[in-house]
């Protein structure tokens, strides 16, 4: 990798001031990533015990999404969206359209999905700014 690739924003932070939206986005990225940790490790243990693979996959998705969101990358939103879709599909496959039974599969993930969508403007501006800084070099 050379300067100007995806590692760049991290470095550029040192001499950059953040907007409130970017701070919130980074905090959100941390939360999403941390939520993924118990899912990944607990989920791996569950696979070892012979249980469902969903939690480990979802945990990996959350961690990846969290890191990318922290970095201000739109890819984080896409990865979260895919994880969210996976939750819906997996949940319906396991319990059908039973509203109560679907709660763990839908409510928390949907709240995170909505918050993630609210960050689209921040992600867009962050993305532009990163691009501009890269170009300026």
């Amino acid at each position: 990798m050379t300067d100007g690739t995806t590692t760049y924003p991290a470095r550029s932070r040192a001499h950059r001031s953040y907007t409130a939206g970017q701070w919130l986005l980074m905090a959100f990225g941390v939360i999403v990533g941390l939520l993924g940790v118990p899912l990944l490790f607990g989920g791996a243990y569950l696979i070892y015990l012979g249980g469902s693979a969903y939690y480990a996959i979802a945990g990996a998705g959350l961690i990846a999404a969290g890191i990318l969101l922290f970095m201000g990358s739109m890819a984080g939103l896409w990865i979260y969206a895919l994880t969210f879709l996976l939750s819906l599909v997996w949940g319906i496959a396991e319990v059908g359209f039973d509203g109560w039974a679907l709660i763990p599969w839908t409510v928390g993930p949907a709240i995170l999905m909505i918050i993630a969508l609210l960050f689209i403007p921040v992600l867009r501006s962050t993305g532009r700014r990163v691009a501009q800084e890269e170009w300026a070099r």
Partner: peptide, 21 residues
């Protein structure tokens, strides 16, 4: 395993691990 429940995937996972064990 699919009967396990929670308010979030995390507590659901905890229940699922207990169920499996």
């Amino acid at each position: 395993g699919a009967s396990m429940w929670g308010v979030s995937p995390i507590d659901q996972l905890w229940c699922r691990i207990q169920f499996q064990k």
